[in-house]
């Protein structure tokens, strides 16, 4: 099939970008979306022009590096997958595809379609962990954790940190991402010691990074490639408000 691509090109963080139009020819429907871009890039490179820069790495939907906003939706038209798992059979011959980077003040564009998501790392650094040193931990089976709790924790922990939630949210809110981490540890017995501190510290950092606030539109949940649910946001609200109003703990 043949396609028309409108791709955001921007040299670096400090320059203004604009859309360029490319033709993608002889695209097989077995290609992944990124392989389609490889083909386009190959052609651009042969012309001696600068290929389109986009982030990608594992290409199996787990590293969270790929991040394209395709025809108005993060990771494109199919639900519960990342861009690298999106295949061209989801498009039709002659279609025009608009490809943009994630748009958020907290995610500045580095080049073309790649954005800087280090804000996510800083939020995790603020408290997204359980403080245990290596060694000296008790036997793994010493605390039984009900299967439902373990599964619930897993469902939150499965977040790949791609940022589609922020990209999808009309407010560029990072609540789903932060909620997932807070919820994972809030459910587990290991996470209790630092529970209140964690919620406060991570929300404070989230706000500092300039993400918007959650207005519960649910766009994040709908676009999340690994199906992180809105209940993580409810948990985050509960954890944070509980920590602030019912029993505040000093964050250190």
């Amino acid at each position: 099939m043949n396609l028309t691509l409108k791709v955001w090109r921007q040299k670096n963080e400090n320059t203004r970008g604009k859309f360029h139009t490319y033709e993608a020819k002889d695209i097989s429907e077995d290609m992944s979306f990124l392989e389609m871009l490889d083909v386009v890039n190959d052609e651009i490179t042969r012309k001696g022009e600068d290929p389109i820069y986009f982030d990608h790495d594992c290409r199996e939907g787990i590293c969270g590096m790929c991040s394209l906003y395709i025809n108005g939706r993060p990771h494109g038209p199919k639900e519960q997958i990342t861009t690298c798992q999106l295949h061209m059979r989801s498009f039709h011959d002659g279609q025009t595809i608009v490809i943009e980077p994630w748009r958020a003040a907290a995610f500045p564009v580095l080049k073309d379609l790649a954005v800087d998501r280090s804000a996510f790392d800083r939020i995790q650094q603020a408290g997204g962990y359980i403080s245990v040193n290596t060694g000296g931990t008790p036997d793994a089976n010493i605390i039984p954790i009900p299967k439902v709790k373990a599964d619930e924790a897993f469902n939150s922990a499965t977040c790949i940190g791609c940022g589609a939630c922020v990209a999808a949210c009309k407010n560029s809110s990072a609540m789903l991402f932060v909620g997932a981490k807070v919820a994972q540890f809030a459910v587990l017995p290991q996470g209790q010691a630092e529970r209140k501190e964690r919620a406060q510290a991570m929300v404070d950092q989230m706000d500092k990074e300039g993400f918007g606030s959650c207005t519960n539109t649910g766009a994040c949940e709908a676009e999340c490639p690994v199906g992180i649910s809105l209940s993580n946001i409810a948990t985050l609200n509960r954890e944070y408000l509980g920590a602030k109003i019912i029993k505040e703990v000093e964050v250190h």
Binding site: V132, T137, P138, D139, P144, K147, F154, A157, Q190, G191
Partner: peptide, 20 residues
């Protein structure tokens, strides 16, 4: 030790209904 360490960090390994 690795399993002990990871469980302490909150890694949600698969569990039986009894919690182990």
């Amino acid at each position: 030790n690795i399993i002990d360490q990871c469980v302490a960090q909150g890694v949600p390994f698969a569990r039986e209904y009894g919690g182990l």
